[in-house]
């Protein structure tokens, strides 16, 4: 396989494994809310599966048992370690993909929003690569999988940027302070810098512009690498101000695909 493609594929596997490992450890910690005493008790949740066939309901009844959930998380941790050490294989990725869907359904469709979406995008990319790999189309599979991931991650920044451009509160720099004020680390102090219009405008337009210019990553691999480096800082700041730690690693797992596509296009 092309060495650049091999490097991108291996980096994606490692970063995805790291991201899934952190998520799995958190899910271990969060078993109580899914227990019968918890908010997400299956005795309540099963009402949301009333439309499903009886075997699907039975499947989720089994999956939601504490012992089965713990076993699933243990197997998932082993699978994640195998992904990091040995790389992706079809059955491994299929287990992680279906297991992740099952966990998210247990959390009523999503646990952490965007990071769940991006984790599924990366797992789908790995699934594309391994399915085609099973038909002796390994190189084509990885190319397709990485391109799939790259398209999604660039779309994510582009859409996230443009919806802010279209909103007056964002354009005027008001939205940032309002979201920070209502966030988990809020409320903002009355003398916070973010209430100052020029600070809010500067911060807001810095990341709106950064998000909106994402297509430039495909002009030159150096631009792609620089964009991704800023991306790490951006997601760290999102963690620091909004508490979204999973986003950092879910998006970092996509960066090898972005750089690979930039190299391929160059």
């Amino acid at each position: 396989m092309d060495p650049i493609l091999t490097l991108a594929a291996r980096s994606t596997e490692l970063l995805c494994a790291f991201s899934l490992c952190l998520q799995t450890v958190e899910f271990f910690w969060l078993r109580e809310p899914l227990s019968e005493r918890g908010i997400w008790a299956f005795s309540v949740q099963k009402g949301g599966l009333a439309h499903a066939s009886s075997w699907v309901q039975q499947l989720f009844a089994i999956l939601s048992k504490d012992s089965v959930h713990i076993l699933h998380l243990c197997l998932r941790l082993i699978a994640v370690l195998c992904l990091g050490v040995y790389g992706a294989s079809l059955w491994l990725v299929l287990f992680l993909f279906l297991g992740n869907v099952a966990i998210l359904i247990r959390w009523r469709g999503a646990f952490n929003g965007g990071s769940d979406f991006m984790t599924m995008v990366v797992l789908t990319g790995l699934l594309i690569a391994t399915i085609l790999g099973a038909f002796n189309k390994q190189e084509l599979g990885w190319r397709a999988g990485l391109i799939y991931i790259a398209i999604h991650v660039t779309s994510s920044y582009f859409i996230a940027g443009w919806v802010k451009v279209l909103n007056q509160d964002w354009r005027q720099g008001k939205a940032l302070a309002l979201f920070l004020d209502g966030g988990v680390f809020g409320p903002l102090a009355n003398n916070s810098l973010y209430w100052r219009r020029w600070v809010a405008l500067l911060c807001t337009w810095s990341f709106i512009l950064w998000e909106c210019v994402v297509p430039i990553v495909f002009l030159d691999p150096r631009l792609a690498a620089g964009y991704c480096a800023i991306g790490v800082i951006f997601h760290f700041l999102v963690f620091w101000y909004f508490g979204l730690n999973r986003f950092v690693f879910a998006w970092m797992a996509t960066y090898p695909a972005v750089i690979y596509l930039a190299v391929a296009l160059a």
């Binding site: 949301g48 599966l49 992740n100 869907v101 998210l104 359904i105 009523r108 469709g109 999503a110 929003g113 965007g114 769940d116 979406f117 991006m118 984790t119 599924m120 995008v121 789908t124 999604h152 779309s155 994510s156 920044y157 859409i159 996230a160 919806v163 802010k164 909103n167 509160d169 964002w170 939205a175 979201f179």
Partner: peptide
């Protein structure tokens, strides 16, 4: 329930 398969990238849009 399967919305994680259909990404929505409109974060903090308004």
């Amino acid at each position: 329930l399967l919305r994680s398969l259909f990404p929505n990238w409109r974060f903090y849009h308004a």
